[in-house]
């Protein structure tokens, strides 16, 4: 059953069309990640779903109800902002309970629900503090608490982790994934970070220039990217992509091979190149090769690789891992 459906949704700002007709179905309980470079329209699309931006054309249904023109509060959504958007003059408890107090619920009911939500997010000790007195991760949790208490059909996350430092980001990634597993609610998550997309999503929607480039599970996108854009966007380090004459020789317009699908040898192989630079990451190593017939090639090898900068080596693609577009 589709919890959320977008049909030919378009958005223009004046003459500039930023969302160019998007169709999407999100199943109940699914964790969907919108990913793409900045300016691809992913945040705008999320804001259209939230009702903060009105679509120029198309329809949007949530839970089987047409909400294209509904007020944000009547759509059954909750949103977590990149800046958290906590009300600075209210305590944590007031922040979480603000929606309920607007709805004029009895004080006892609000207090009970706030306490339950705080319990879920381990915020009980912090309920009387102001947002100023919280750390980044705690503020993030309060913002999530404000969303949970609304008991929404769909959670919307707008790059919620981009203000956190790297280690906290990894921890919050896990917490959000845990939360999804526990609440089993539908979540839509916007990010430009493909690691977040790969690690959290049931389904990734890759957006580019206001249109959907490809929709699929993380491993589908990794194994069988539909376009060179998706191929280059998913995976780290990026896939080696070659166009022009090289690709034509391989009977395609773009030829791609992932760094982890190249084996190096000293003896013989398909391409010969010189190692320009070597990055050792511990578990593995990233080598940058100058290959005369291709240009630059990035190769991922095991951490204890015997090769060193300046050496000339042969590179071979792993059978069946090549991509031709």
């Amino acid at each position: 059953m589709a919890e959320l459906t977008l049909k030919q949704v378009r958005k223009s700002f004046g003459a500039l069309e930023v969302i160019k007709g998007i169709d999407l179905e999100v199943a109940s309980g699914e964790f969907v990640v919108f990913v793409g470079p900045s300016g691809c329209g992913k945040s705008t699309l999320l804001r259209i779903i939230a009702g903060l931006e009105e679509s120029t054309a198309g329809t949007l249904t949530i839970g089987g109800k047409d909400v294209t023109y509904a007020e944000p509060s009547e759509r059954g959504i909750a949103m977590v902002f990149q800046s958290y958007a906590l009300y600075p003059h209210m305590t944590v408890a007031e922040n979480i309970g603000f929606g309920l107090s607007l709805a004029r619920r009895p004080k006892a009911e609000i207090a009970a629900k706030v306490a339950a939500t705080a319990e879920t997010l381990q915020l009980t000790q912090l309920l009387e503090r102001k947002p100023k007195a919280l750390s980044g991760g705690q503020r993030q949790r309060v913002a999530i608490g404000r969303a949970i208490i609304r008991d929404p059909k769909v959670f919307l996350f707008d790059e919620p982790l981009s203000n956190l430092d790297a280690s906290l980001r990894a921890q919050m990634r896990l917490e959000i994934a845990d939360l999804h597993a526990r609440l089993k609610s539908t979540m839509i998550y916007v990010t430009h970070d493909q690691v977040e997309a790969m690690t959290m999503a049931d389904k990734i929607v890759v957006l580019n220039g206001g249109a959907v480039e490809q929709i699929g599970s993380p491993m589908e996108l990794y194994r069988t990217p539909a376009t060179p854009f998706v191929a280059g966007f998913i995976g780290s380090p990026k896939m080696n992509l070659y166009g022009g004459e090289t690709a034509r020789r391989m009977n395609c317009t773009t030829y791609g091979i992932r760094p982890e699908h190249i084996r190096l040898s000293e003896g013989a192989g398909q391409w010969q190149g010189r190692i320009r630079h070597l990055e050792r990451l511990g578990a593995d190593a990233i080598l940058y090769l100058d290959v005369p017939e291709l240009g630059e090639m990035v190769v991922r090898a095991e951490g204890e690789t015997p090769f060193a900068p300046g050496m000339t080596v042969w590179a071979n693609p792993v059978e069946g891992a090549e991509h031709r577009f």
Partner: peptide, 14 residues
Amino acid sequence: IPRDLDEAALIDGA
């Protein structure tokens, strides 16, 4: 004052 606050309140039903 960040506009996000207005929008967060709007979503909260204000």
